[in-house]
């Protein structure tokens, strides 16, 4: 464990809690992409299957349970409890265009052709594009509530910190995982224009408005 990965995990946890709290407190999921949340649920489910089989550390196991539980809770709130507030009209990204290529790529490029490893690889590829429906929805609605932009910022920063973690681990532990690194770079790059808008607008108290 290193400070970059710890801060990354905390930022990730913060993002998930910000979102869950926003939906729960406002009793509404307006402006949130249910499709992205479904993809994140799929990412955690396929990645954390080893929760039962391999024990890494208490921290690792506890965080996996928390991420899975928060993800399922968010999906439940969006698609069941507060279904009436779900914005179907703006959440129209075709997620099959993300899932199918991730499956294909996981079968082609992986470290080991075993079920758990293929699923882990699939989850890494899918996570790198899972936020696209949400970013697409923000661009369609042309704006995002500030709490939603805080959620996106924390989520984007988490994988950015993981990039620093991988640099550190390559240098300090002579250890690297190219699949995770390439996917992590793609994932972080997708947030760049959002980061620019967040820093130039939201941090100055303005609403996140995309140029129409």
């Amino acid at each position: 464990m290193n400070i970059f990965r710890l801060l990354g995990d905390i930022s990730h946890l913060l993002a998930i809690i910000i979102l869950l709290r926003k939906i729960w407190m406002s009793r509404s999921c307006a402006g949130i992409s249910g499709k992205s949340q479904l993809l994140f649920g799929l990412v955690y489910t396929t990645r954390y299957l080893d929760l039962i089989t391999s024990y890494i550390s208490l921290y690792n196991s506890v965080m996996k349970v928390v991420f899975l539980a928060a993800s399922y809770a968010t999906i439940y709130l969006m698609y069941v409890k507060f279904k009436a507030t779900y914005d179907h009209n703006h959440d129209t990204f075709r997620i099959e265009f993300l899932v199918v290529p991730a499956v294909a790529l996981a079968l082609l490029i992986n470290h080991d052709f075993q079920v758990v490893e293929i699923l882990w690889t699939f989850s890494i590829y899918l996570e790198s594009v899972a936020i696209l429906p949400q970013l697409f929805m923000v661009s369609k609605t042309g704006e995002a509530e500030s709490i939603t932009s805080h959620y996106l910022f924390a989520l984007g920063v988490y994988r950015g910190l993981y990039l620093l973690n991988w640099i550190y681990r390559f240098w300090a532990e002579d250890h690297y995982d190219l699949i995770a690194i390439v996917a992590g770079v793609v994932q972080t790059v997708l947030y760049c224009d959002f980061f620019y808008l967040y820093i130039t607008k939201v941090l100055r108290g303005k609403k996140l408005q995309l140029p129409a």
Partner: peptide, 10 residues
């Protein structure tokens, strides 16, 4: 550097 297979990251 060896490739990471035991995925110890979240």
């Amino acid at each position: 550097a060896e490739i990471n297979n035991n995925h110890d990251e979240l």
